[in-house]
Simulated scan of single mutants.
Amino acid sequence: MANVLPGRFASSRWSCARQRGGPIKPAAWQSRPLTTTHFLKGQAMVPDDLSPNARLALRALACASERNLEGFRTCCAPDIVLDFPFHPNGAQTHYGVDEMIREFSVEKVFETFRIDPQEVLDCGDKIIIEGRSHGTYRSGRPPYGNHYIFIMACKDGKVTHWKEFYNPLEALKQNYGKPRPEKQAGA
């Protein structure tokens, strides 16, 4: 696909700085460049050469964002690992797709919630997605928004590791991780 957006929203190529085992030698990164795909207001600018792993990671993120948890299950390995390195309650790790689905479905305080991908970095079996969340609460509290970085490992057509970084300061502003009346009432 040709670049259809000017400036920073145009599809571009980058070299991968690291790979398993250390820095990539120049010959390796020249033959396997990192693809950057930008998103603008939910309209994906996806080049034809986006890898199956990048498409899988974007599909998994869309299913999680839409709370399509059974669709999400089809994207993930049964033994997937979910990491929240900077959770407001301390680092958390969850094991298995069923535990991950429970973790994602527990947050029922939102009337609406979505994560819009902003940029995708495709490193073969590692996919990095930058995204922004937008949510409205059932209780009428001010809207929730946050900035995310997802690092996903893919193998054999499944996401095997999901590492989610988000701004804990934004989460703490919304009392994320603390008891809330609407959460206790089952809203």
Rank of each mutant, 00 (worst) to 15 (best):
M1Q: 12
V4G: 06
G7T: 09
G7M: 07
F9P: 00
F9W: 09
A10C: 03
S11T: 13
S12I: 11
S12P: 01
W14M: 14
S15K: 10
S15W: 06
R18D: 09
R20C: 04
R20S: 15
A28M: 08
R32E: 12
P33C: 10
T35M: 10
T37I: 02
M45I: 13
M45P: 03
P47L: 01
P47Q: 03
D48Q: 13
D49F: 07
P52S: 12
P52E: 10
P52F: 03
N53E: 15
R55A: 04
L58W: 01
A60F: 01
C63E: 12
S65T: 08
R67P: 02
L69H: 09
E70M: 08
E70F: 04
V81E: 04
V81C: 00
D83I: 02
H87W: 07
A91S: 13
T93A: 08
G96H: 10
E99P: 00
E99G: 05
R102Y: 06
R102H: 11
S105P: 08
C123S: 14
I127D: 01
I127R: 03
G131Q: 01
G131E: 06
T136E: 06
G145Q: 13
N146M: 08
N146A: 07
H147S: 15
Y148H: 11
Y148V: 05
K155M: 04
D156K: 10
D156P: 03
K158S: 07
K158E: 07
V159E: 00
K163H: 02
K163M: 06
E164N: 09
F165E: 00
F165R: 00
K173R: 12
K173Y: 06
K173M: 09
N175T: 09
P179T: 04
R180E: 13
R180Q: 14
P181I: 08
E182R: 00
E182W: 00
Q184M: 12
Q184V: 08
